[in-house]
């Protein structure tokens, strides 16, 4: 188990280094950040000065090694735009994004699994067909459009829920969260639903196909032959088997919820790191982009590790060993 975790962390390091190299040189190619930093009427001399100040006059590889040297000393670079440490900026915004992603994940599980089970166990029921049709919509409708429609319906027309922002927040252990105020919940609801929509559809489909497959297995028939109640068969025998793929996929999807909540955060003006990233890309704020990528990669690796550990708890046939990559 320990060997497994160490091995995983080593792999993570390799992935992070590779990502940093790619992103660093990628952003270098896109354009010259100097133009974003100097006023429009700056003279050639001023431009050259800013260039030297930030080291942009050096060849790319030298800039990279300087950057790497800074990273080794725990200095991840300052945002060109905000002038603050890029990592700090991101970590400040991270709780809001995590909160949103977590709420979306809970919605996906709480709505998706029961509906998926129903559709899987009663495939010919008209309601099942309705669920499946709705899940196609969930897959196909673009997030930004659904977000706008949600605002239109619930905020503009009905006026039930606020359209933007995080609402009243409380500090818990130094983290600002909207999970402990009613106003916060109201603000969280629409963006969470918006972000969850795709995942709900995914969970419905996964659960349905898992339940359909499992319900045909001999062990289910044997469980029925033992005289067990349908509730026990579905709740224990079937559910425990289909949780394995669901946990795996949801783990991976949680990473993507965090990393790609950009659209939802922008529409609902949610103060998360997705919104920060979008601004950073627009302004070629290289340290911020690189730091963001590092954080997201680390997040993905951590989630994968947790999923693997959960997996072994759910499926006794899986044992984590050092040789397992």
């Amino acid at each position: 188990m320990l060997a497994f975790i160490i091995r995983r962390l080593a792999q993570a390091l390799v992935v992070i280094v590779a990502m940093v190299v790619l992103v660093f040189f990628g952003t270098h190619v896109i354009g010259d950040p100097v133009w974003m930093m100097v006023p429009g009427d700056a003279t050639q001399e001023q431009i050259e000065q800013v260039r030297r100040e930030f080291g942009f006059d050096q060849p790319a590889y030298i800039q990279f090694f300087r950057f790497l040297g800074d990273v080794m000393q725990g200095e991840f670079g300052r945002s060109y735009v905000h002038g603050e440490s890029a990592i700090t900026l991101i970590l400040e915004r991270m709780p809001a994004t995590m909160e949103l992603a977590f709420a979306a994940l809970v919605l996906a599980v709480v709505i998706g699994i029961p509906l998926g089970l129903f559709a899987g166990l009663k495939p010919d029921h008209p309601l099942s067909r309705g669920i499946m049709a709705a899940s196609i919509l969930g897959f196909s409708l673009p997030t930004f459009w659904v977000g706008l429609m949600l605002i239109m319906l619930f905020s503009v027309m009905l006026g039930w829920l606020p359209a933007t922002g995080q609402g009243t927040t409380v500090e818990i252990f130094g983290i600002r969260t909207s999970l402990f105020t009613l106003d916060g919940w109201k603000h969280l609801f629409l963006p969470a639903v918006n972000l969850a929509l795709l995942k709900v559809s995914l969970v419905i489909r996964l659960t349905r196909s898992g339940a359909r497959e499992a319900s045909l297995q001999d062990y289910v028939k044997f469980a029925r032959a033992k005289g067990l109640s349908p509730a026990r068969i579905v709740g224990v025998h079937i559910l425990k088997n289909i949780l394995i793929p669901i946990v795996t996929v949801l783990g991976l999807e949680f990473g993507s919820l965090v990393a790609f909540s950009v659209v939802t955060e922008t529409i609902f003006a949610w103060p998360g790191m997705g919104k920060l990233l979008l601004e950073a890309i627009q302004r070629l704020d290289r340290p911020l982009i690189v730091a963001y990528v590092m954080v997201v990669v680390l997040l993905f690796v951590t989630i994968n590790l947790i999923v693997d550990i959960l997996y072994s708890a759910l499926d006794p046939r899986v044992r984590l060993t050092g040789s397992q990559a």
Partner: peptide, 14 residues
């Protein structure tokens, strides 16, 4: 009832 394939009749995760 006892089934044909013992590899399939017991639930693998319980």
């Amino acid at each position: 009832m006892v089934f044909q394939d013992p590899m399939m009749t017991l639930n693998p995760v319980l």
